[in-house]
């Protein structure tokens, strides 16, 4: 009998994890790019000239997160990077780790970790936005 055991959680069979991993990965190329630019390059000249102490400081982050565009980018980044990272981790665990019988618990565990981390991360972001 064909192994119709769709133990990959979300969706029937493994199509959705496969597909969403690629969609999220593609989107992350842009989101991570913007994030790294903001964190490491924008304002670099000011630091080198001595007009600014460091690249990343509380006030700098607060100013950035006052703009709606960056609020959207940061929340999207948090959600997508958590999905992509934990999705990838799930693949590695299911292939290199314990047997298929425990795949349900692994998936649920990772989903839980994702939700908790997203909530925590959002809490931190809100702290900057609402302060």
């Amino acid at each position: 009998m064909p192994n119709l055991n769709s133990t990959q959680g979300l969706g029937n069979g493994g199509f959705w994890p496969w597909f969403l991993q690629r969609v999220s990965g593609f989107a992350l190329i842009f989101l991570v790019g913007v994030h790294m630019w903001m964190g490491h390059f924008s304002g670099l000249q000011e630091v080198l000239d001595g007009r600014r102490e460091e690249l990343v400081l509380y006030e700098v982050v607060k100013l950035r997160l006052a703009q709606t565009a960056f609020i959207v980018v940061d929340f999207a980044l948090l959600a997508l990077v958590l999905y992509h990272a934990l999705g990838g981790l799930r693949s590695v665990i299911l292939e290199w780790g314990p047997a298929a019988s425990q795949s349900r618990s692994v998936t649920l565990g990772l989903i839980l970790l994702g939700i908790v981390t997203f909530a925590y991360g959002s809490w931190v972001l809100l702290h900057f936005i609402l302060a």
């Binding site: 509380y58 006030e59 982050v61 990077v81 958590l82 990272a85 934990l86 990838g88 981790l89 590695v92 981390t117 925590y120 991360g121 809490w123 931190v124 702290h127 900057f128």
Partner: peptide, 25 residues
């Protein structure tokens, strides 16, 4: 895979670091 695993680890470290903002500016 190796870079992916490294980045997952870094991700959580990064979130913890940024969360120090909760303790004040």
């Amino acid at each position: 895979r190796i870079t992916g695993l490294g980045l997952v680890f870094y991700l959580f470290v990064h979130i913890m670091v940024i969360s120090t903002a909760l303790a004040g500016a």
